[in-house]
């Protein structure tokens, strides 16, 4: 088990390193004019040179990369217009647009996504798996058909339409749901819940339909397994047979999708952030692109990759906890 985890960890770290190299390559080696783009309208060649210098663009590529890596490990400083900026380790670069280290910007936004994922995932995982499991027990009945129909309907309406409609009608016009806003749960837990409940419900319920569909399929399969028949033959209650024996096997493939979804939501939930006015990582990534804030773009890519890799690692470990056969592989 420990060997398994260590091996996964090693591969996770190498994926992160490769991502850093590739994103560095794409943004700094690719023929582009980042300094010119940053410079803006009242640009002079001197200003461009200064920006290039502050970004380290005047140095050879290999040296730039070495500097970047060094920044990641021990931190570095940036000079701009005679002012020195500190970028403590792990330094992912310095955003002159925001006048702060990239990582700082990203970390400031992360709690929004963390909060969003936490509540929404709780809703869609629990309702999705429960509804899907119940439907799987009686495939073809009215309840089951209703579920399948609803999920099909839901999946044919884009998420942002639903989110916009809810916002317009249930938040603005008939204010049943509170207006979304992010407040740290450590400052005011009540305000945190009130501020997040609307996106939680919208994202949670919308996504729960697809979770119901995955779990339904997975459960129909596992309910017909021989070991579920064995469980029945032991005299176990229907509830125990369904939610311990059948679900135990059915949940494993669902967890893989869950891990990827959570990773995706952590990095970006652009529609939710934009529509409900939450300053999360998705919005930040979008702004960094429109501003052509190169260090921030690159930082976003790396942080996104790291989050994905961490989630994959967690899913792998979780998988090995769920499926004992994986541990020996």
């Amino acid at each position: 088990m420990l060997v398994y985890i260590l091996r996964r960890l090693a591969s996770a770290i190498s994926v992160v390193l490769v991502t850093i190299v590739i994103s560095f390559g794409l943004f700094f080696v690719a023929p582009s004019d980042p300094a010119g783009m940053l410079c803006g309208v009242k640009c002079t060649p001197a200003r461009v040179a200064e920006i290039e210098k502050s970004l380290g663009l005047d140095k050879p590529t290999s040296e730039q990369f070495a500097l970047y890596m060094k920044g990641l490990v021990v931190g570095r400083t940036y000079e701009s217009g005679g002012v020195t900026r500190e970028c403590p380790a792990p330094c992912l670069g310095f955003s002159f647009k925001n006048d702060q280290p990239v990582l700082g910007t990203l970390i400031a936004r992360l709690p929004v996504n963390l909060s969003l994922v936490f509540g929404a995932a709780l809703i869609f995982l629990i309702t999705g798996v429960t509804v899907g499991s119940l439907a799987a027990k009686r495939p073809g009945t009215t309840g089951d058909r209703a579920l399948v129909g609803t999920t099909l309907l839901m999946s044919s309406v884009p998420y942002y339409i639903i989110a916009i409609l809810v916002f317009l009608y249930l938040v603005i016009q008939v204010p049943i749901l509170p207006r979304p806003a992010y407040v740290s749960p450590f400052q005011n837990p009540g305000a945190w819940i009130a501020g997040m409940i609307t996106p939680w419900l919208v994202l949670g319920i919308y996504s729960s339909t697809s979770y119901a569909r995955y779990s339904r399929g997975s459960m129909i399969e596992s309910l017909s397994e021989d070991y579920v028949r064995t469980a029945r033959a032991k005299g176990l209650s229907d509830r125990r047979v369904t939610f311990v024996h059948a679900l135990r096997a059915a949940i494993t493939p669902v967890m893989t999708i869950f891990g990827l979804d959570v990773a995706g939501l952590l990095v970006s939930s652009i529609f939710t952030e934009k529509i409900f006015g939450l300053q999360g990582l998705g919005i930040t990534a979008l702004q960094s692109l429109t501003n052509y804030d190169l260090p921030l773009i690159m930082g976003t890519v790396i942080v996104g990759a790291v989050v994905l890799v961490i989630m994959n690692f967690i899913v792998d470990v979780l998988y090995s906890v769920l499926d004992p056969r994986v541990r020996l592989v």
């Binding site: 028949r229 032991k234 005299g235 209650s237 499926d323 004992p324």
Partner: peptide, 28 residues
């Protein structure tokens, strides 16, 4: 009823299935 049968299954009457590979739960 199924509730009555539960007391009989595994207690009064037990069954051994054909394929021990698939009849035991792989995750427990």
């Amino acid at each position: 009823s199924q509730d009555d049968m539960r007391k009989i299954r595994g207690q009064v009457a037990s069954i051994i299935f054909q394929d021990p590979q698939s009849s035991l739960h792989p995750y427990f």
